[in-house]
Design a protein around this nucleic acid. Structure first.
Length: 571
RNA sequence: GACUAAUUAGCUCAGCCGGUAGAGCACAUCCCUUUUAAGGAUGGGGUCCUGGGUUCGAAUCCCAGAUUAGUCACCA
């Protein structure tokens, strides 16, 4: 890869530092005694503090005025301005540290450590008056420059591709991004504390599974060499966790990365995080209370209030949330009671409501479509929707009193599902039948159909207590709690298509190919970065390009002859 | 998978009807001892995403492809 002018400059600067006896990448620790946030907050209250501070961070801007300079450094908590005076950081004759090291060899992006005292400038900005300066890391790649004044951001670094592929750059120049991820961790920690307080056991179950199950999704497939067997990356943890309830734990939960080989969009990443919880001797009504309480606590932990701004809406997570059965919700939003309709009537109703349907849809699917089209988009405030059609819920217990339904609920919020829970099916014979039916359905479209997990059924045959189970999407919850528009904004490293990496061809490879040293950099400039490229190049175009570059760069070498070029390509 | 849009300097972006590639920041050199998105002067920096085509001539028009985003489809 050709280096840009600025990259070459920075590499030279690093070399110059070495010549001055300064290691641009020193080994010893640099022990700071405070941070930028602490200084800014506390100095405001008591300006006798911080008379001997030591801090470190990345240089984010510089203003040099001859023998004195200001620059800003950024640490994890924020930025602070530094004041450097030539004669103070270089009290003796030798002014190299200021004139050469600071002014010439350091740049925006480099990491330095400083010690000195805190003061306020004439402009009223809390700053560190630097007495000592140490280079901690020379950056050889220039950062995007983002400037800001009175909250207005100039030249913002916003290109999603670069932000997601190079999250580290995003984190450096867009400080609010750091906050999103701090909040995400706080969500997880709050949830974990809540569950631990209740006495549930955090567990780990296999990610590599010989049989995948627990959801309707296509898996990622891999292979174990020693066992010479196919393994799947899990799509859900449900079956393993229920086996632990059979084993006698009264409450188990897992924060799990799950993997689904499906389409990607603003709400779906191939790997995502769920928290699944199973508690013995409970039912789905109990679980609704638990979800409300847990999510309300998370909102309070993050925002100090139950009200959270999401897009244009203010969402209030305070308990109790609204509760509708699926039928009630449909009646509420359409005025039509479908609870006693048969398949034909449902079909007519769907058509009347302009809900797109097709012939393959059974009763359950029709109800679900009607709900999705007419209700989901209107549920802004957190709402429990419960009692689902049996067809699409093979792991949920049949309703205690209503035929054709299961004891299942979802919480919908800002028009999106955030969790999914049931009274778990623990009748092993019913479970076998339901899974087998599901299998039949699955076989129609899918080339690789699911297999019934016999070991899971065996476990149920030993007897699982009545249990309530929950799956809550951490990414979705994080999106909502941080007002993020896309799942990529709450994942540090969202999945992206791999960048095509050109085969690395060294100068020596080109020389072996017969290319003279002087022409190599021209070749690279002409877009020929590898031998592969050279062999596939259009000879006439390349011939013109190279001689054009020779002229442009005023090279003091004879013009290339086409025979010469041919010899490189054909060798 | 379909449609739409974007891709130009390290970054943010202009670039008209096809005629030698532009700005601001950043970078380099010089001046400047309390500045604050931007002090002054001068200068360097380009695979105009890639590959074809049309044309005397393409960043610009046409075709194909790559990547990203949005919408829809699929998918709990």
């Amino acid at each position: 890869m050709e280096l840009s002018e600025q990259e070459i400059q920075r590499r030279n600067d690093a070399e110059e530092l070495r010549k001055l006896g300064i290691n641009p990448y020193p080994a010893p620790m640099y022990d700071v005694n405070t941070n930028t946030q602490e200084i800014k907050q506390e100095f405001e209250k008591d300006n006798t503090l911080f008379q001997d501070v030591k801090i470190a961070g990345r240089i984010m801007s510089r203003r040099i005025m001859g023998a004195a300079s200001f620059c800003e450094i950024q640490d994890e908590k924020g930025k602070i301005q530094l004041y450097l005076n030539r004669d103070e950081i270089c009290p003796k004759e030798d002014k190299t540290l200021y004139n050469t090291v600071f002014k010439k060899l350091l740049d925006i992006g480099d990491i330095i450590g400083v010690s000195g005292y805190v003061f306020k400038t004439k402009m009223g900005e809390t700053s560190v008056h630097v007495k000592e300066l140490k280079v901690l890391c020379k950056s050889v790649r220039p950062l995007p420059i983002v400037k800001e004044k009175d909250g207005k951001v100039y030249d913002a670094f916003t290109d999603p591709e670069q932000r997601y592929r190079q999250r580290y750059v995003d984190l450096i120049v867009n400080p609010q991004v750091k906050d999103t991820f701090v909040k995400r961790t706080l969500i997880v920690n709050t949830m974990r504390n809540y569950l631990d307080e209740k006495g549930y056991l955090e567990v780990e179950t296999p990610i590599l599974q010989p049989i995948y199950g627990g959801a309707a999704a296509r898996p990622f497939k891999t292979h174990h060499n020693t066992l010479d067997t196919t393994l799947y990356l899990r799509i859900a943890d449900e079956l393993y966790l229920k086996k632990l309830i059979v084993g006698g734990y009264s409450g188990v939960y897992e924060f799990s990365k799950d993997f689904r080989n499906e389409g990607m969009d603003r709400f779906h990443n191939p790997e995502f995080t769920q928290m699944e919880l199973y508690v013995a001797y409970k039912d789905y009504f109990w679980m609704m209370n638990t979800v409300e309480e847990m999510v309300e606590r998370i909102a309070l932990a993050l925002h100090g209030t139950t009200e959270v701004k999401v897009g244009e809406n203010i969402i209030n997570f305070s308990r109790p949330w609204k509760r509708y059965t699926m039928y009630e919700a449909i009646e509420h939003f359409t005025g039509i009671d479908i609870s006693n309709m048969d398949e034909k009537e449902l079909r007519q109703t769907a058509t009347k409501l302009n809900v797109p349907i097709d012939d393959t849809m059974g009763k359950g699917k029709l109800i679900d479509e009607i709900f999705g089209e007419t209700c989901e988009g209107k549920l802004i405030q957190p709402t429990f929707i419960y009692d689902y059609p049996i067809e699409m819920s093979p792991l949920a217990k049949k309703h205690r009193s209503k035929n054709g339904l299961v004891e299942r609920f979802e919480a919908v919020c800002n028009c999106k599902e955030i969790c999914n829970a049931y009274s778990e099916l623990n009748d092993p014979l019913d479970q076998r039948q339901r899974l087998e039916e599901q299998l039949e359905l699955g076989k129609r479209g899918d080339s690789e159909s699911m297999v019934v997990d016999e070991d899971f059924l065996k476990a149920l045959e030993y007897g699982m207590p009545p249990t309530s189970g929950l799956g809550i999407g951490i990414d979705r919850l994080a999106m909502m709690m941080t007002n993020s528009n896309s799942i990529q904004d709450v994942l540090f490293f969202p999945q992206m298509k791999p960048e095509v990496q050109e085969a690395i061809t060294t100068d020596n490879d080109f020389i072996n190919q017969g290319v003279p040293q002087q022409w190599i950099s021209m070749l690279r400039k002409a877009g020929i970065g590898s031998l592969e490229n050279l062999k596939n190049a259009n000879i006439n175009k390349l011939f013109n390009d190279l001689n054009g570059l020779r002229k442009k760069n005023k090279l003091d070498i004879p013009a290339l002859k086409i025979e010469e070029l041919k010899s490189w390509i054909e060798k």
